[in-house]
Every structure is written in structure tokens, then in C-alpha cells.
């Protein structure tokens, strides 16, 4: 299975990288941009008996290491890939 995890700064935390990229986009003429937030994408290959089991393991990985919940939120999706069919 593959877990695709997105870690992004919490909305209340200022994001200097996002703000700078926002300004850069504006200076390139992308006037429609009203906000940019920059985070991380983490792709994890794992084995699990079910999507539910994988979800709970990935959730734990996010809480323990992948995201610092003081400043970041996370979300993920599980791609079962070539899960053996029952």
C-alpha cells in the first residue's frame, strides 16, 4: 500500500515561505492568487492487512514524527495499490 501524506502549516501559523511565493506569483502577474501555503508531501510504502489498519498506523506516524502539531496539520490518503483481492 501507499500512504500519501500532506503536512501543512496550521492556518494560524504564519508561513513565510508561502507569503514569499504569493508575492512572487503576484509579481509574475498571477493577480488571482489570494493565498499560498507551503507544506510537505510524504509518500510511504507500507504493508497492512486492511486500509483501516494502514490508516491507523499512518495516523500514528503523523502524530509521532511526520507532523509537529504545534505548527502543522496533516492529512493523508491510503492507496491500497495491489491489495490482494479477497
Amino acid at each position: 500500500m501507499i500512504a500519501r501524506v500532506i503536512v501543512a502549516p496550521k492556518p494560524v501559523v504564519n508561513d513565510p515561505q508561502g507569503a514569499t511565493v504569493h508575492r512572487a506569483l503576484a509579481s509574475l502577474g498571477f493577480a488571482e492568487v489570494s493565498g499560498v501555503r507551503i507544506g510537505k508531501y510524504v509518500e510511504i510504502q507500507l504493508t497492512a492487512g486492511s486500509v483501516e489498519e494502514a490508516s491507523s498506523r499512518v495516523e500514528a506516524m503523523c502524530r509521532e514524527l511526520l507532523a509537529n502539531q504545534v505548527i502543522e496539520d496533516f492529512r493523508f490518503e491510503i492507496d491500497p495499490g495491489t491489495l490482494p483481492r479477497p
Binding site: P9, N14, P16, T20, N68, I71
Partner: peptide, 17 residues
């Protein structure tokens, strides 16, 4: 120390980048 939870809060990218 912040990551370890021995101190609160976090240190993020400098505002000036």
C-alpha cells in the same frame, strides 16, 4: 528541546527566509 517536548512551542523558518 522543543521537538522533544521538553520546552513548548516550535521554531519555524525565519520571517525574512
Amino acid at each position: 528541546l522543543c521537538e522533544a517536548g521538553l520546552l513548548p512551542g516550535a521554531l519555524i523558518r525565519n520571517a525574512c527566509l
